[in-house]
């Protein structure tokens, strides 16, 4: 199918984009990589009146890692995936990106776009949540920072206001004791996850978990943290398989729904298996 008619503005600065969003409100949509928005427009599930194309905004696609990993909103997923600096400082970001759709989609898809779109089954929002990251949004009144824990509000819904543009994504650079893992179940390679998990665990020199963030995706209206899983890990050795199994079992209590792709029971079991696998990866340390 073909998209409905719309007006189009290719802006060159963030200020221009914000001004247009402020002026046109809900009618306007930001166009970044277009890998989620344009399919919705082609299917006429979205019919924005104005597209604000931010692809030509200079400097919005930066990739930097100096104590904190800072990714510009229009940084292409493929470029971040291949960045040695990101691989060293935020390996979970790379691991998540490798599961985002297909290489040819990642060549065009952006970091900011995937997070702002907030598909509940998408990898990057869960990675951001597991790493305790944040986003920087610019609106008419200036910039503000939104923690991942406060960003995702529901199906395809974030705390971003209609006149705000997500400009940067930040995650802390991995400390030496950080252990990470991610896995998901999908019908075929590149499909959205039926269930998935991303974990980031800080261990001390003895291997004891000091803190843990366990995020699951594809099982609720947004990526969510499993508090019971995190509590099961803290204070116990990550190498303790019983602790990891207990953490994974927390997913069995998820209040999830079945749909045409998978039943609620399947999703809970799969989420638990993915938490178990992600924690096993974290334990092996290779993934860091």
């Amino acid at each position: 199918m073909k998209p409905a008619s719309f007006r189009y503005a290719a802006v060159e600065t963030v200020d221009e984009a914000v001004a247009l969003l402020a002026e046109h409100g809900d009618e306007a949509k930001v166009l970044a990589g277009g890998q989620s928005l344009v399919p919705l427009m082609n299917l006429r599930l979205a019919e924005p009146g104005l597209l604000v194309d931010v692809n030509r905004v200079a400097g919005l696609d930066g990739i930097a890692a100096n104590g904190v990993v800072e990714l510009g909103a229009t940084a292409r997923q493929a470029d971040v995936e291949r960045s040695p600096a990101v691989a060293a400082a935020a390996p979970l970001v790379v691991r998540g990106l490798q599961r985002v759709a297909y290489p040819t989609v990642r060549a065009r898809g952006t970091i900011g776009g995937s997070i702002a779109h907030a598909d509940p089954a998408a990898e990057l929002p869960a990675v951001l949540l597991a790493l305790g990251g944040e986003v920087v949004a610019r609106g008419p009144g200036g910039e503000r920072t939104i923690a991942a824990d406060d960003l995702f509000r529901g199906y395809f819904t974030t705390a971003l206001a209609p006149d705000e543009l997500l400009v940067r994504v930040r995650v802390p650079a991995a400390a030496p004791g950080l252990r990470v893992g991610l896995d998901e179940v999908a019908r075929k390679q590149g499909d959205f996850a039926l269930a998935g998990a991303a974990v980031a665990v800080e261990v001390d020199e003895a291997g004891t978990c000091r803190s843990a963030r366990v995020a699951v995706f594809g099982v609720a209206d947004r990526p969510i943290r499993l508090a019971a899983a995190e509590q099961a890990l803290v204070g116990r050795p990550l190498a303790d398989a019983a602790a990891r199994d207990e953490a994974a079992a927390a997913a069995l209590a998820l209040d999830t729904r079945g749909d045409g792709h998978a039943s609620a029971e399947y999703r809970r079991e799969a989420a638990a298996a993915m938490v178990r696998r992600a924690l096993a990866q974290a334990t092996d340390g290779g993934a860091r």
Binding site: G34, Q35, V38
Partner: peptide
């Protein structure tokens, strides 16, 4: 130089 799905890019872009 980048592979793209041409059905997901508008010609004006």
């Amino acid at each position: 130089g980048r592979p793209v799905r041409s059905c997901l890019l508008f010609a004006v872009q």
